[in-house]
């Protein structure tokens, strides 16, 4: 069903999948380890930032990039898919900003 070029391409993809698999396993263990480390909290404009939350979300974002980029082939996808996702991202970010604006109704940054 496939010519030699396609077969070579698939074999290359399989190697990438295995590398990403290893990276995801390491990322998961790193996430758990980082949750037990008490990172120093820092302040931005008088507000205390929980570094553990930042680290955990950063590792999760890297893992999500690996899954979306390589397993879902977003690294090399067509323009239309990027268009759909750009529109989705716009509304998703808007949704999160709604939450941030709503925080003005609550005591700010009560996460300890």
């Amino acid at each position: 069903m496939s010519d030699s070029h396609d077969i070579h391409h698939v074999h290359q993809a399989v190697r990438r999948y295995l590398i990403v698999f290893g990276a995801l396993l390491v990322g998961t263990l790193l996430t758990v380890w980082a949750s037990y480390v008490h990172f120093i909290h820092f302040h931005i404009g008088g507000a205390e930032i929980n570094t553990n939350v930042v680290v955990a979300l950063f590792i999760a974002s890297v893992k999500a990039f690996l899954v979306a980029g390589y397993f879902m082939h977003l690294i090399s996808e067509r323009k239309m898919i990027y268009g759909i996702l750009t529109a989705t991202g716009f509304f998703f970010v808007g949704l999160m900003f709604l939450t941030i604006w709503a925080m003005h109704d609550y005591p700010m940054l009560t996460i300890k």
């Binding site: 509304f91 999160m96 709503a102 925080m103 005591p107 700010m108 009560t110 300890k112």
Partner: peptide, 25 residues
């Protein structure tokens, strides 16, 4: 999947709102 992103996005934003709005501790 775009609609699914918005579905889970709404719930994640609810989580953030509940957590940040919770009294300290």
């Amino acid at each position: 999947l775009a609609s699914e992103v918005m579905l889970f996005g709404a719930l994640f934003s609810s989580y953030i709102l509940l957590r940040v709005g919770a009294a300290a501790g």
